[in-house]
Write a protein that binds this DNA or RNA. Structure first.
Lengths: 224, 224
DNA sequence: CACCCTATGTTTACAATGTAAATATATACG
DNA sequence: CGTATATATTTACATTGTAAACATAGGGTG
């Protein structure tokens, strides 16, 4: 057999054959690195050493590309094995899902708009629903519980990603901002901003809300 | 004085002068009616009887248009007056905010990405923060409470809008869907879908999650 | 009223983007 | 090998946001 060309040989040698997963992964990598706005078909083609139209052999259209990418990252969510403590399951899976969305900022926006769920997403949902089922939630409550947790995951990720300022930047921008801010018109909002500026956010607000929800679910599950 | 031309006279008479609010309102109306995808500068111009470029005298660019529209709908949120029952305030404002986002499906996606808040949005935030402040929440908890509620509002709206199927459509599509669905591979997900199909969603899942959160906040505020 | 200055609207143009259609090439299989 | 099928390229076009230059109108001042 002839020597197979090394996949990463970039310049002279012929590139490895394209396939759907390579396209999806390159797309995710590009979106991670430069933002979803940089992900154009031409640019992604260039990234793979190929013309834009070549991508259409592996992807129906850009929407298919995006949802394929999404399902790829959905596969990164950790699905804990069963254990008697339902809160532990649910909590860990939710935290992992949230972390994945934060790690791929472009993914959170797609999460809510995907009509056709990919296999990884389905595995994730199935796992989440099973945990709640095994915990003994009756069907209606189970449904509500699942959606409330899901809403919190995606809601928090999107809100957090909407303020893409790291702590230092926020200090600067915020101080500057407060100088021109009509403090007397929105006093509580001003206080809120000030609070964000001085206090190091201790821990993640995500887990606070999550525990609030889990507490409430536990109580509704077994009303004492 | 000469007779002022009627604003709605469409064909022969000269149209009323454009201004920012007319542009923003027409934009919101168009996005409401035909989806955010139909909102192009040319189309919006046509809607107002004007060329696309005329809009740029009243709006810096399309982003400015969108955020202007958003602040317009933020003004639709009801801000309840004070009353001793903090949960009542917070609950009603949250429900109103959620309803507004559901009424303007394009708005929910913008809500999370607005760096510069408009005046209506600021009034809304100020009002929400004041309610929690008057309820006696200490600063850290207040902050967490506000963001958790906000996350729930936007998270639920986006998730709900992501499945834009009314009940009847869902029955059809769902039945059809379940036939080709690998039920044995995702048994709990299949059960979940079945549950959605048969059970009339009694009430809004939004309020369920909201009350879960409010319960938890009440308990954290005054640990018995 | 005449004048002109500024705010508003139009025309033309261009670059970026997704993708259809036709064409070329390479790979696998008989 | 030779041919059919899968893959890649080329060319082209419609749609979009918006820059730049030009046109106009309308109102305040002489």
């Amino acid at each position: 057999m002839p020597p197979v060309p090394t996949p990463n040989d970039s310049s002279t040698e012929r590139r490895t054959r394209l396939n759907r997963d390579r396209v999806l992964d390159a797309g995710a990598a590009l979106a991670d690195a430069e933002g979803i706005g940089a992900l154009t078909m031409r640019r992604l083609g260039k990234e793979l050493g190929v013309e834009a139209m070549a991508l259409y052999n592996h992807v129906h259209n850009k929407d298919d590309l995006l949802h394929g990418m999404l399902d790829r990252v959905a596969g990164e969510i950790e699905l804990p094995d069963s254990s008697p403590d339902w809160r532990d399951h649910v909590r860990r899976r939710a935290i992992s899902a949230h972390a994945v969305l934060m790690r791929h900022p472009w993914a959170a926006g797609l999460w809510t708009s995907s009509i056709n769920l990919g296999p990884a997403r389905m595995r994730y949902m199935d796992s989440a629903l099973r945990s709640l089922d095994e915990a003994g939630f009756p069907p209606d409550l189970l449904d509500r519980a699942f959606h409330t947790i899901e809403d919190h995951i995606v809601g928090h990720a999107l809100q957090a990603l909407g303020f893409p300022l790291d702590h230092d930047q926020m200090m600067e921008t915020g101080e500057e901002f407060l100088r021109t801010f009509p403090v007397d018109e929105y006093p509580d909002l001003a206080a809120h901003i000030r609070h964000h500026l001085q206090d190091d956010e201790d821990g993640d607000g995500f887990e606070f809300g999550l525990d609030l929800i889990l507490d409430g679910l536990e109580r509704r599950r077994s009303p004492s």
